[in-house]
């Protein structure tokens, strides 16, 4: 990557290794994501891409190496780490909305508890966000009453409510029925267009082509390719990427 200015990258990983028991899931990962960049991480299942995403807010601790977010190394477990996570938005494959709270409460919980915003102000912001993702009419329902697509959009609103510096998406559309994928991708595309720094683990090639600035291809815990979407989809360099693209683009 070309460092265009002196500001620290939003995400910096330096020689990161991670094991699950004997399984070496992340192998010497070094990468930087500058501010405002939208990075899509592709790769076959089991390639370590979800784990990579989850190490950035330390939901998965790493064994060796260094991870920095906006120039700050990830703190160890505790208050400091909670503060850092508040600035890193995360969207999960299975939504993980708080099941006992309404959609509105889901969005206001962290701003009130962590940022200590007054409830009225948090509600106002939450309603604006719900409008942005198109589900204001669902505000008082419980997550189980919403469709998957609506739940995922609510989860994006919940993450945005903390005004994060960077957003991590861990296969945000993989648990959705096909007809609901687009509504979630539309919200993500808008967000990308607004200049949000994003790291998106996905299988949605359309999104990668349209919204990403950069594609990282992982296989067996390694970063195999790191290029622009155009380059990756039209002229992949490695055999593994060609093989992967051959399998998913033929149908």
């Amino acid at each position: 990557m070309t460092a265009s200015n002196t500001a620290p990258p939003m995400i910096r990983m330096e020689s990161v290794d991670k094991f699950f028991g004997p399984l070496h899931v992340l192998k010497d990962i070094t990468l930087q994501v500058p501010k405002g960049q939208v990075v899509v991480v592709l790769g076959p299942s089991g390639s370590g891409k979800s784990t990579l995403c989850r190490t950035i807010n330390r939901l998965e601790p790493i064994d060796t190496g260094l991870i920095e977010v906006d120039g700050r190394p990830l703190p160890a477990e505790g208050k400091e780490l909670a503060n850092l996570r508040a600035e890193v938005g995360m969207v999960f494959q299975s939504f993980n909305l708080f099941a006992h709270k309404t959609i509105l409460e889901n969005v206001t919980l962290a701003p009130v508890k962590v940022r200590k915003l007054p409830v009225a102000e948090a509600r106002k912001t939450a309603m604006e966000l719900l409008e942005r993702v198109g589900i204001t009419n669902q505000a008082d329902k419980y997550p189980a009453q919403l469709s998957g697509g609506q739940q995922q959009r609510a989860a994006i609103a919940r993450a945005l409510a903390m005004r994060p510096k960077v957003m991590l998406f861990d296969e945000p559309t993989s648990a959705l029925d096909p007809e609901m994928v687009q509504e979630v991708l539309d919200v993500m595309t808008t967000l990308a267009g607004e200049g949000m720094t994003m790291l998106v683990v996905t299988h949605e090639m359309g999104f990668a082509r349209k919204a990403a600035n950069r594609v990282i291809f992982m296989s067996d815990g390694e970063v195999v390719e790191d290029s622009t979407p155009d380059e990756f989809f039209t002229a992949p360099k490695s055999g593994r990427a060609k093989d992967f693209l051959g399998k998913i683009l033929t149908h």
Binding site: A82, N83, A86, V88, M90, L97, L109, V114
Partner: peptide, 9 residues
């Protein structure tokens, strides 16, 4: 996980 990810201790 979601609770920790939004910054709750």
């Amino acid at each position: 996980e979601a609770a920790r990810a939004v910054g709750l201790t």
